[in-house]
């Protein structure tokens, strides 16, 4: 048994400290700020755990976009919300603390009692990866060995968007998403939104393209693209599309449709749903990745943009 490296100990302490801050600080807005920092440190933890793919996703999606979502939501909540000040009594808190410590302790025991040697599917992945023509094992798992999960996930994203839109009041239907609209943005932000997006597009496509053989892939690329779109929206350079816009809806489901289409073709050509014909695996995987990246980027952006609001909302509410 060797001791963990000091840097790992430091990271673990930092993660727990920031998590404690998110839980204990009094103002919701500050808790959301703490969550952003927490996500970034967590991304470093994932790098230490050898999962660069997860680290990229955590930094971009878990910290960046989730943080933006929570910060904007915290800023929109009423200032005199009684939920900001009321706290449960000490009795409830002690019981909760005991209960949660017990849960954490049980999980810790599980971690310490994990079977030795550790079961692993890594050899199975390594043995079959060459059949897919893809060099990054995580991409191989996501799009070949566990493709059903990824297909389900792409559909979950569409469903989340449908659910989000269905929260709109009747008079708002047909309007534009309202979360990201605000007062005129400051000039430096507008400048950034004019200069940065082309570089973001290059980085996003690059992440997709190298994702076949190196850390990266459609989710990370899509997050970067969505972030660029959101930057342009927040800076007020463009309006988000109306929820009734057909091209935008088409783009949102395009990825899932391509995925299902190729999967069905596989049932016919290669004998099983989502099986790829011999030799064509890599180009097919890349087509699915490209289509999914477009759709995921659009959906992430729309999820951040929120439900539609009536057209005059920005003017009336002040």
């Amino acid at each position: 048994m060797s001791l963990p490296a000091p840097v790992d100990l430091g990271l673990a302490a930092l993660v727990l400290g920031l998590a404690g801050w998110v839980i204990t600080t009094s103002a919701t807005y500050r808790a959301a700020e703490g969550f952003v920092a927490y996500g970034l440190v967590l991304a470093l933890v994932w790098v230490r755990l050898g999962s660069v793919d997860v680290a990229l996703t955590e930094a971009a999606l878990g910290s960046g976009l989730t943080g933006l979502l929570l910060l904007r939501a915290a800023a929109r909540l009423p200032a005199d919300d009684p939920a900001e000040t009321t706290r449960p009594g000490p009795g409830v808190r002690v019981v909760a603390a005991v209960l949660c410590t017990a849960v954490a302790g049980a999980l810790a025991a599980v971690v310490l009692l994990l079977p030795e040697p550790a079961p692993s599917l890594a050899p199975a992945v390594a043995a079959n990866l060459s059949a897919t023509g893809v060099g990054n094992p995580v991409t191989g798992v996501l799009l070949a060995f566990r493709a059903v999960d990824t297909l389900g996930e792409s559909i979950v994203l569409v469903l989340a968007l449908v659910g989000l839109w269905s929260l709109a009041p009747d008079d708002a239907w047909g309007g534009r998403p309202g979360f990201l609209r605000g007062p005129a943005a400051a000039s430096p932000l507008r400048f950034l939104a004019q200069v940065l997006p082309p570089f973001g597009i290059l980085v996003g496509i690059h992440l997709l393209w190298i994702g076949a053989d190196h850390p990266g892939g459609k989710f990370q690329g899509a997050t970067v693209l969505a972030a660029m779109w959101v930057l342009v929206l927040v800076a007020g350079l463009r309006q988000p599309p109306r929820v009734t816009s057909r091209p935008m809806r088409g783009l949102a489901v395009f990825g899932s449709l391509v995925f299902v289409g190729i999967g069905t073709a596989g049932a016919w050509l290669a004998g099983a749903f989502l099986a790829y014909p011999e030799g064509l695996a890599k180009p097919l995987i890349l087509s699915i990745e490209t289509a999914l990246m477009l759709s995921v980027a659009v959906i992430l952006g729309l999820l951040l943009a929120g439900p539609p609001e009536p057209d005059d909302a920005a003017g009336v509410r002040s």
Binding site: A186, P188, L189, F191, L192, V195, L196
Partner: peptide, 10 residues
């Protein structure tokens, strides 16, 4: 630099 200048001004 671009990021620093923008965030600083904001």
């Amino acid at each position: 630099l671009l990021a620093g200048a923008t965030v600083g001004q904001l």
